[in-house]
Every structure is written in C-alpha cells, then in structure tokens.
C-alpha cells in the first residue's frame, strides 16, 4: 500500500493528512480531515455540492486529487464563519429561506462567496451564471438568487459605512 502525506492550509489552519495517491480531495476532506460540510452529489463535477476554493479559485473537490492540495490553501463552508459570526451570505440564506433540504447549500455558499469576492455588485444574470455549476433541486433557485443579491447589498453597505 502506498500513499502521500499532504501538507496544506484549510480555512486558515495548517493541516496534514495522509491518503492514497488516487484519493480525491473531496474524500480526503470528508474522511480524513472531517470536513463533512463538503458534500458529494455526483462525484463527476456536475452538481457543485463539493465546491471549495483552492488558492482562491472555485473548484469541485471531487475533480481534484488530494495530493494536488500540497502547499495550497483550501477554503470550505466551515471557514465562512468568522469570529463566531455567520457570514452575511449565511445569514441571508437563512433569512431568505434560500434552502429547503440544505444539501446543496454549502456548495452554493462557497460559490456565491467566490463570486462576491470577485464581483461585489453582480447583476442577476451574473449571479445566475456564477451559480450555474451548482445544482439545487428544491428551490428553483429563486430565493437563492435573492439571498445572494441581498447579501451583496449588505456587504457593500457595510464596506462603505
């Protein structure tokens, strides 16, 4: 049996884990690091439930080998809470009822944060295309888009205040 030792930064913390060479980052994050907020919906990069950021770039962790995370920075839904406070996107998803079953929610939040990091004032169309890699089967996306619009507005207001 062979494997690799991966040294990485996850949500700002230094983390080490060992895994087989062929293991996906999704499986490693869930089974070895214990970050169960990263969800598997398909394993083929089609649903976005396993969305994370890798060096700030939005990726499906099911399409990345764990070994590729060596020396890189990973962001997951577990890292959105800062100083015990929910991220405005998290608050907005709750207050706008943007989740029903909630299984896709971690992926949507990571994807939405990635969008707002790049574009603090997106149009509805920009939001829809930025989130097109994430499948939600419950909501029809209506309240998700509204929640992102609301969070973006609040974040802009907070920044200019």
């Amino acid at each position: 049996m062979s494997g690799v030792l991966v040294t990485t930064t996850i949500n700002g913390d230094a983390v080490q884990f060992a895994c087989p060479e062929e293991e996906t980052l999704l499986d490693a994050l869930r089974d070895r690091v214990g970050l169960l907020g990263v969800k598997e919906g398909c394993g083929t990069g089609d649903c976005g439930a396993c969305s994370i950021t890798l060096d700030g770039r939005l990726v499906c962790s099911c399409l990345v080998l764990a070994a590729e995370a060596e020396g890189r920075e990973i962001g997951t839904v577990e890292g959105l809470v800062e100083g015990g406070k929910l991220h405005p996107l998290q608050e907005s998803f709750i207050s706008h009822a943007a989740l029903q079953c909630g299984i896709c929610t971690p992926g949507f939040l990571v994807a939405a944060k990635s969008l707002l990091d790049r574009n603090p004032d997106p149009t509805e169309t920009e939001i829809r295309y930025a989130l097109a890699g994430n499948l939600c089967r419950c909501t029809g996306y209506d309240k998700i888009v509204r929640a992102v619009q609301n969070a973006a507005k609040e974040m802009r207001t907070a920044k200019s205040a």
Partner: peptide
C-alpha cells in the same frame, strides 16, 4: 445515468418564479 447527460435545470436556465 449522470447529471451531465440527464440535464436538470440550473440557475441560469430559469427566471424568478
């Protein structure tokens, strides 16, 4: 048998409902 070929609506396919 996969989400690529069994295509469910994504966010950019739909308007507000």
């Amino acid at each position: 048998p996969g989400f690529l070929d069994y295509r469910m609506p994504v966010c950019s396919d739909l308007p507000f409902i």
